[in-house]
């Protein structure tokens, strides 16, 4: 009987310690949200490079910009934000963004 009580106590203490340790770790799981880009020439290249660093809603939330603004934005991503986009692909991305998310100007 005495042994049983001690065993129960030990289990209770172990359980408590486990709970405390578990409570010390705070975790969340961030949902994956798919954003569809508009179909058009250069979409795959745009998706491939831009989604390395951020979700594609970064593109779709922008107001329509003239091409000059998309040039500035894509160059900022490469030169300032460190995006590894070769020059030829950058031109494809700029053309795609200007065509699909641009003012036409």
């Amino acid at each position: 009987m005495k042994k049983l009580i001690i065993l129960s106590l030990m289990l209770a203490v172990a359980g408590f310690a486990y709970a405390a340790e578990k409570d010390a770790v705070h975790s969340i799981e961030i949902p994956v949200v798919k954003t569809e880009l508009r179909a058009g020439e250069g979409m795959d290249t745009t998706e491939k490079y831009c989604s390395i660093c951020h979700s594609l809603d970064y593109i779709t939330m922008q107001p329509k910009f003239p091409k000059a603004t998309w040039v500035v934005e894509v160059n900022k991503m490469i030169k300032v934000m460190g995006a590894p986009i070769p020059e030829a692909d950058a031109r494809v991305i700029i053309d795609y963004l200007s065509a699909q998310y641009g003012t036409g100007g």
């Binding site: 961030i30 949902p31 994956v32 949200v33 951020h54 979700s55 809603d57 779709t60 107001p63 998310y101």
Partner: peptide, 25 residues
């Protein structure tokens, strides 16, 4: 004024909020 449709999303420990971007949130 909106170039796109705003979506609502529920992220951990949050209620339904207006989703601008998901990664990073």
């Amino acid at each position: 004024l909106l170039a796109y449709e705003r979506r609502m999303a529920r992220f951990p420990e949050k209620t339904d909020l207006i989703l601008l971007t998901s990664r990073p949130p």
